[in-house]
Amino acid sequence: MLVGVPKEIKNHEYRVGLTPAAVKEFVTHGHDVIVETNAGTSIGFDDEQYIAAGASIIDSAEEIFARAEMIVKVKEPQPNECKMLREGQTLYTYLHLAPDPTQTKLLVESGATCIAYETVTDNRNGLPLLAPMSEVAGRMAVQAGAHYLEKSHGGSGTLLGGVPGVAPGKVLVIGGGVVGTNAAKMAIGLGADVTILDRSLTRLRELDDIFANQLKTVYSTIDAIEYYSSKADLVIGAVLVPGAAAPKLLTRDHIKAMKEGSVVVDVAIDQGGCFATSKATTHQDPVYIVDGVVHYCVANMPGGVARTSTMALNNATLPFGLALANKGPKRAMLEDAHLLNGLNVHKGKVTYKAVIDALGTELNLEYVEPKQALEL
């Protein structure tokens, strides 16, 4: 198979779909890899390393899209990239379609086979290709929150860890999954007063066992969100409904009730955000203020630590990518139900139910079972 790796073009996105080490794996399995020039240069993977791994360097994204049988990316394709996709071609990347009608429409029109990292599953009902970036984003959320709590950046001037004689800052984490757990680790490490909300008692018990008396676990209700957000210096939105639009858990009234200069970090912004006042921002212009509350809603947070993120992501995506190349997409997905769960669009059909639930009426689309779509 001819595998293509274009350079990412989203604002301040420096990650790359394949590292030189991953390219070498594909080449060793008998595949050809073409990489756009300077695709990984900014994070220490220069063209010479890709050539040494067996790749060919291509000058333009247009040629990558025109020639490759499978496109491996990191972020969702931008509109001009979507228009270069074609039927019979496989796209393997993050998609986050539910809050994005434009991308969904363009991918449907392309006829391509589009596999979303964020909906591939594993034997433990986890999301193995989303988990590495969730770990990064959870840890970064606390770093970002601490930074923007500084007075010079619009915050209240609160140090999360406090100092002897001064109480630490209060951190509220909404959601106890991978993002929330990693955010809690970082916040506890800084010495903050941490509360985590979740609707799963089983998960709350697990968190209580992990962290013991280092944080407070609270069952998530409207009343709990209202109370703890009003007391918090930093609120981290860490909720996830796989492949679906994020629920709006923090309302405008909750934001208004928060302390002046407090900070909210919406890690769910890729799926539309879990705060009513959230709108996607970029690393170039990461924050805005609503009702005195600083909002950090960068849609590609892990791109800020692109080298670490790229290597962590490749560790997870490589086995599935090799399966797609070695067996061909259809056979690979039919033989692996977890990879099949990653199929979101195929030959003009939407094959992920949560996307239809969010956009089906708006775009006049109908859901088709993944296996059924592959047989078309």
Rank of each mutant, 00 (worst) to 15 (best):
L339Q: 04
A257F: 02
Y288D: 03
R205W: 10
T351P: 01
E260S: 13
S278E: 00
A21V: 05
I51F: 06
F211Q: 01
G189A: 07
L365P: 05
I225M: 09
D253W: 08
T41A: 15
A323R: 15
M84F: 01
G155Q: 06
D46V: 05
G157N: 00
D209C: 13
T310V: 04
T181D: 07
V350A: 08
D209F: 11
P99L: 01
A246E: 00
K231P: 01
L322M: 14
Y227H: 13
S56G: 12
R307C: 03
G176Y: 07
A245Y: 06
E48C: 08
P370G: 14
R205P: 02
R86I: 15
P242Q: 04
M1S: 15
Q143L: 11
G180Y: 05
P247K: 13
T102Y: 02
L339G: 04
N182Y: 14
I196F: 07
N125Y: 13
E375C: 00
G237W: 09
F275P: 03
K347D: 13
Q78G: 00
A245E: 06
P20R: 10
I57Q: 09
V239I: 08
E87M: 06
P79C: 07
P168K: 09
A276P: 01
A312H: 01
G303D: 10
T104N: 00
T277P: 00
L197W: 10
